[in-house]
Protein backbone atom coordinates (compact mmCIF):
# COMPACT_ATOMS: atom_id res chain seq x y z
CA UNK A 1 0.00 0.00 0.00
CA UNK A 2 1.24 3.46 -0.87
CA UNK A 3 2.76 5.31 2.06
CA UNK A 4 2.26 9.00 2.61
CA UNK A 5 4.54 11.29 4.61
CA UNK A 6 3.13 13.15 7.57
CA UNK A 7 4.92 15.78 9.55
CA UNK A 8 3.59 17.72 12.51
CA UNK A 9 4.46 19.01 15.94
CA UNK A 10 3.42 16.79 18.84
CA UNK A 11 3.52 18.44 22.24
CA UNK A 12 6.21 20.77 20.91
CA UNK A 13 8.40 18.14 19.25
CA UNK A 14 8.77 17.68 15.49
CA UNK A 15 7.49 14.32 14.27
CA UNK A 16 7.73 12.80 10.78
CA UNK A 17 6.38 9.42 9.74
CA UNK A 18 5.30 7.48 6.68
CA UNK A 19 1.84 6.00 7.09
CA UNK A 20 -0.58 4.04 4.92
CA UNK A 21 -2.97 6.40 3.19
CA UNK A 22 -6.16 6.43 5.24
CA UNK A 23 -4.43 5.91 8.57
CA UNK A 24 -6.19 7.77 11.32
CA UNK A 25 -4.31 10.21 13.49
CA UNK A 26 -5.20 7.96 16.46
CA UNK A 27 -3.37 5.02 14.92
CA UNK A 28 -0.46 7.17 13.80
CA UNK A 29 -0.02 8.59 17.30
CA UNK A 30 -0.42 5.28 19.11
CA UNK A 31 1.16 2.74 16.77
CA UNK A 32 3.76 4.79 14.88
CA UNK A 33 4.83 7.54 17.25
CA UNK A 34 4.16 5.73 20.53
CA UNK A 35 1.96 8.30 22.25
CA UNK A 36 -0.71 6.03 23.72
CA UNK A 37 -2.46 8.69 25.77
CA UNK A 38 -5.30 9.05 23.24
CA UNK A 39 -7.44 5.92 23.67
CA UNK A 40 -9.47 4.01 21.11
CA UNK A 41 -12.83 3.48 22.77
CA UNK A 42 -15.03 3.23 19.69
CA UNK A 43 -13.08 4.25 16.55
CA UNK A 44 -16.25 5.87 15.28
CA UNK A 45 -16.36 9.26 16.96
CA UNK A 46 -18.91 8.53 19.66
CA UNK A 47 -16.92 8.19 22.91
CA UNK A 48 -14.32 10.99 22.96
CA UNK A 49 -11.53 8.87 24.48
CA UNK A 50 -9.26 9.67 21.52
CA UNK A 51 -9.66 13.45 21.83
CA UNK A 52 -6.61 15.57 21.01
CA UNK A 53 -6.04 19.26 20.38
CA UNK A 54 -5.14 20.27 16.82
CA UNK A 55 -4.17 23.91 16.29
CA UNK A 56 -6.05 24.84 19.42
CA UNK A 57 -9.28 23.01 18.57
CA UNK A 58 -10.67 19.81 20.09
CA UNK A 59 -10.58 16.97 17.58
CA UNK A 60 -11.44 13.27 17.55
CA UNK A 61 -8.21 11.62 16.43
CA UNK A 62 -10.11 8.46 15.40
CA UNK A 63 -11.97 10.45 12.74
CA UNK A 64 -9.01 12.54 11.62
CA UNK A 65 -6.74 11.24 8.87
CA UNK A 66 -3.08 11.57 9.75
CA UNK A 67 -2.27 12.85 6.27
CA UNK A 68 -4.50 15.90 6.86
CA UNK A 69 -2.37 16.97 9.82
CA UNK A 70 0.74 18.10 7.99
CA UNK A 71 2.16 21.18 9.64
CA UNK A 72 -0.33 21.02 12.50
CA UNK A 73 0.34 21.71 16.15
CA UNK A 74 -0.97 18.65 17.99
CA UNK A 75 -1.35 18.42 21.75
CA UNK A 76 -2.19 15.34 23.79
CA UNK A 77 -2.63 14.66 27.49
CA UNK A 78 0.77 13.00 27.72
CA UNK A 79 2.39 16.37 26.93
CA UNK A 80 0.36 18.45 29.33
CA UNK A 81 2.60 18.30 32.39
CA UNK A 82 5.60 20.64 32.12
CA UNK A 83 8.91 19.48 33.61
CA UNK A 84 7.05 16.93 35.68
CA UNK A 85 4.66 19.50 37.15
CA UNK A 86 1.05 18.60 36.57
CA UNK A 87 -1.23 20.98 34.70
CA UNK A 88 -3.93 22.47 36.98
CA UNK A 89 -6.52 20.29 35.25
CA UNK A 90 -4.52 17.15 35.99
CA UNK A 91 -4.08 18.29 39.58
CA UNK A 92 -7.81 18.96 39.89
CA UNK A 93 -8.72 15.52 38.50
CA UNK A 94 -6.46 13.94 41.12
CA UNK A 95 -7.78 16.02 44.00
CA UNK A 96 -11.43 15.51 43.04
CA UNK A 97 -11.01 11.73 42.72
CA UNK A 98 -12.33 12.18 39.19
CA UNK A 99 -10.68 9.10 37.73
CA UNK A 100 -11.68 5.51 38.25
CA UNK A 101 -10.67 3.16 35.42
CA UNK A 102 -8.92 6.13 33.81
CA UNK A 103 -9.63 5.14 30.22
CA UNK A 104 -11.75 8.22 29.47
CA UNK A 105 -9.50 10.55 31.48
CA UNK A 106 -7.03 11.72 28.78
CA UNK A 107 -9.92 12.57 26.45
CA UNK A 108 -11.83 14.33 29.22
CA UNK A 109 -8.77 16.41 30.06
CA UNK A 110 -8.32 17.41 26.43
CA UNK A 111 -11.96 18.50 26.18
CA UNK A 112 -11.66 20.44 29.44
CA UNK A 113 -8.40 22.08 28.35
CA UNK A 114 -9.93 23.46 25.16
CA UNK A 115 -12.83 24.81 27.19
CA UNK A 116 -10.56 26.55 29.68
CA UNK A 117 -8.30 27.88 26.91
CA UNK A 118 -11.32 29.63 25.39
CA UNK A 119 -13.38 30.35 28.51
CA UNK A 120 -11.46 31.23 31.64
CA UNK A 121 -14.46 31.17 33.95
CA UNK A 122 -16.93 28.65 32.59
CA UNK A 123 -20.33 28.09 34.14
CA UNK A 124 -21.41 24.57 35.10
CA UNK A 125 -23.53 24.50 31.95
CA UNK A 126 -20.51 25.37 29.82
CA UNK A 127 -18.48 22.60 31.46
CA UNK A 128 -21.28 20.11 30.84
CA UNK A 129 -21.49 21.20 27.22
CA UNK A 130 -17.73 20.85 26.77
CA UNK A 131 -17.69 17.31 28.21
CA UNK A 132 -20.82 16.12 26.47
CA UNK A 133 -18.90 14.37 23.69
CA UNK A 134 -16.95 12.22 26.13
CA UNK A 135 -18.33 9.00 27.61
CA UNK A 136 -17.48 7.92 31.15
CA UNK A 137 -18.96 4.68 32.48
CA UNK A 138 -17.52 4.75 36.01
CA UNK A 139 -17.91 8.11 37.70
CA UNK A 140 -21.38 9.39 36.93
CA UNK A 141 -19.63 12.55 35.58
CA UNK A 142 -20.16 14.71 38.67
CA UNK A 143 -16.57 14.40 39.99
CA UNK A 144 -15.27 15.28 36.52
CA UNK A 145 -17.48 18.36 36.30
CA UNK A 146 -16.29 19.40 39.76
CA UNK A 147 -12.65 18.87 38.78
CA UNK A 148 -12.99 21.13 35.73
CA UNK A 149 -14.75 23.84 37.74
CA UNK A 150 -12.02 23.64 40.39
CA UNK A 151 -9.25 23.89 37.80
CA UNK A 152 -10.99 26.90 36.24
CA UNK A 153 -11.14 28.62 39.61
CA UNK A 154 -7.46 27.86 40.26
CA UNK A 155 -6.56 29.25 36.83
CA UNK A 156 -8.47 32.48 37.27
CA UNK A 157 -7.04 33.00 40.75
CA UNK A 158 -3.53 32.61 39.34
CA UNK A 159 -4.36 35.08 36.60
CA UNK A 160 -5.74 37.61 39.10
Amino acid sequence: MAKVPVQFTLNGSEKAEFVDSGTTLLHALRDKIGDTSPKGGCHQGTCGACSVIIDGELRLSCLTLAETCNGADIRTTSGLAEAGVLHPLQRAFLDAFATQCGFCTPGMIMAAKVLLDHTANPSREEVVEALSGNICRCTGYEPIIQAVLTAARANSQNAA
Binding site: Q44, S132, R137
Partner: peptide
Protein backbone atom coordinates in the same frame (compact mmCIF):
# COMPACT_ATOMS: atom_id res chain seq x y z
CA UNK B 1 -24.31 -0.68 18.14
CA UNK B 2 -22.64 2.51 19.35
CA UNK B 3 -22.91 5.28 21.93
CA UNK B 4 -25.31 7.25 19.73
CA UNK B 5 -27.84 4.43 19.81
CA UNK B 6 -27.11 2.89 23.20
CA UNK B 7 -28.43 5.50 25.58
CA UNK B 8 -27.06 6.56 28.95
CA UNK B 9 -27.44 9.83 30.86
CA UNK B 10 -24.76 12.35 29.90
CA UNK B 11 -23.18 15.03 32.09
CA UNK B 12 -26.19 17.26 31.44
CA UNK B 13 -28.72 14.67 32.62
CA UNK B 14 -27.58 14.13 36.20
CA UNK B 15 -29.86 13.84 39.19
CA UNK B 16 -28.92 15.77 42.30
CA UNK B 17 -27.30 12.91 44.19
Amino acid sequence: TDFNQYLMPGPGDLAKT
